[in-house]
Amino acid sequence: KWEEIAERLREEFNINPEEAREAVEKAGGNEEEARRIVKK
């Protein structure tokens, strides 16, 4: 599940997989929260 979210974030925000994974981890697997983290 987290991998899927990280993949979507990576494609959408054009970030590297590591950044995407970190955002999802910080968000506890919550996609909306992960998006907010990435946008900062």
Rank of each mutant, 00 (worst) to 15 (best):
E33P: 01
R35N: 03
I15R: 00
V24F: 02
F13N: 05
K40R: 11
I37D: 06
K40W: 10
I15M: 06
E32G: 06
R35D: 01
P17Y: 15
P17G: 12
E4R: 09
L9N: 00
F13G: 02
E32K: 08
N30K: 05
E22W: 14
I5W: 02
A27M: 03
R21E: 04
G28M: 14
R8F: 05
E7T: 12
E12A: 07
A20C: 04
I15T: 04
V38N: 01
E22L: 14
E19F: 13
I37W: 07
E19G: 05
E33G: 06
V38A: 15
L9R: 00
E7L: 13
V24R: 00
V24L: 12
E33V: 14
I37H: 07
N14H: 08
V38F: 06
E32D: 12
K1R: 10
W2I: 07
A20H: 01
E22R: 14
E22M: 14
L9G: 00
V38S: 03
E11S: 13
E25W: 14
A34M: 01
I15H: 00
R35W: 10
L9M: 04
A23C: 04
E32T: 12
K26I: 12
I5P: 00
R36G: 10
E33L: 11
W2F: 08
K39T: 12
K40A: 15
E3T: 11
V38L: 15
A27S: 10
E4L: 11
E33Q: 09
G29K: 02
G28Q: 15
F13L: 07
G29H: 03
R8V: 03
R8A: 06
R21F: 11
R10P: 01
A6W: 09
I5K: 03
W2G: 04
N30T: 03
F13T: 03
E12D: 08
E11A: 15
E32H: 08
E19N: 05
R21S: 10
E12C: 08
N16W: 06
E7Q: 14
R8K: 10
A23K: 02
V24T: 05
P17I: 15
E12G: 03
V38K: 01
E22N: 13
V24H: 00
N16G: 13
N30G: 04
E11T: 13
E33N: 05
E25D: 09
K40Y: 14
R21G: 02
E25F: 12
E7K: 14
N14P: 05
E19A: 12
I15N: 01
A27V: 04
E4T: 07
E31C: 03
E22G: 09
N14I: 04
K39R: 11
K40N: 15
R8W: 05
I15S: 03
K26C: 07
A34S: 04
